[in-house]
């Protein structure tokens, strides 16, 4: 039953793969525009494992540092903006400006200010990841049921303790969702930053193979970063479910 269900769910992907392979093999589309899946996987196998790990690790490392840094800042900022009017007055305009701005537009700026190395890339991802986390923490903190707050107060909680002991856990499901969005956004910014200019990373690899005309290699890079993104998202969903197991 479960095996049949898994097959059923995999079916769209399998059909797409089959169509892709046939289209490329029969010459329906040119091998340059769309290399056959088999040659992409062959290229994947042909890449030196060391290189692949290195570039993947570089990309993931940048994303990880940025996300890990954005979480405490974003959560604290979101809760404080929700909780204290002066903070809201101070930070809200900044947030409103940052929210709709396409973060990739900042790439040239980060390069001019911070160079082409890790710092500029991590900063870009950090800024991009920060926004959905702040928004989620803000919405989560604003949505806390007042009876929970009142109960905690009447049981003797001080205001600072209230933020830590009630507001944060009550806002947690929303914060975890915000971080999920931030992770997806981080992958966009990792690749975008590396595509523009970099010395390493998956985005850099995709760029190099593309310019060299080695399209199976380029597609291999796309598949690797997509797989890593998919795995990161699944892992985060699993972690979120575990952290909020009390919701049943």
């Amino acid at each position: 039953m479960t095996a049949a269900l898994m097959l059923w769910r995999a079916l769209p992907v399998l059909i797409l793969a089959a169509l892709w392979e046939t289209a490329a093999r029969t010459g329906l589309v040119s091998e340059h525009a769309l290399p056959a899946l088999s040659s992409i996987f062959a290229a994947l196998g042909g890449l030196s494992a060391g290189d692949l790990y290195y570039h993947t690790a570089r990309s993931v490392g940048r994303g990880l540092i940025a996300i890990v840094a954005a979480i405490p800042f974003g959560v604290a900022a979101g809760i404080l903006i929700a909780w204290y009017l002066p903070v809201r007055v101070l930070l809200n305009p900044l947030l409103q400006c940052l929210y709709p701005m396409p973060k990739v537009a900042l790439i040239p700026l980060t390069i001019i200010w911070l160079g082409i190395g890790d710092v500029s890339k991590i900063t870009l991802i950090f800024v991009g990841a920060l926004v959905p986390i702040v928004m989620a923490a803000f919405n989560g903190a604003r949505g806390v049921d007042r009876t929970l707050l009142w109960t905690a107060r009447s049981l003797g909680a001080s205001e600072v303790r209230l933020l830590w002991e009630v507001v944060l856990p009550a806002a947690l499901p929303e914060i975890l969702n915000g971080i999920r969005t931030a992770i997806a956004l981080a992958f966009i910014l990792i690749v975008a930053g590396e595509l523009v200019i970099a010395n390493d990373g998956i985005g850099h690899m995709i760029n190099m193979w593309g310019e060299a005309g080695h399209y199976p290699g380029m597609f291999a890079g796309v598949i690797v970063i997509s797989a890593v993104g998919f795995a990161a998202d699944r892992a985060w969903v699993a972690l979120s479910a575990w952290l909020t197991a009390w919701r049943q």
Binding site: D145, T147, L148, W150, T151, A152, R153, S154, L155, G156, E165, V166, P169, A170, L172, T244, W246, R247
Partner: peptide, 26 residues
């Protein structure tokens, strides 16, 4: 508010992330 005046709400207002005993221990 103060601990000399306890309150019980219609909506229970339990901390959903705490178990029964953790709620009471709070």
């Amino acid at each position: 508010p103060g601990p000399d005046r306890g309150i019980v709400f219609q909506s229970f207002a339990l901390f959903p992330w705490k178990t029964v005993i953790q709620n009471i221990l709070y």
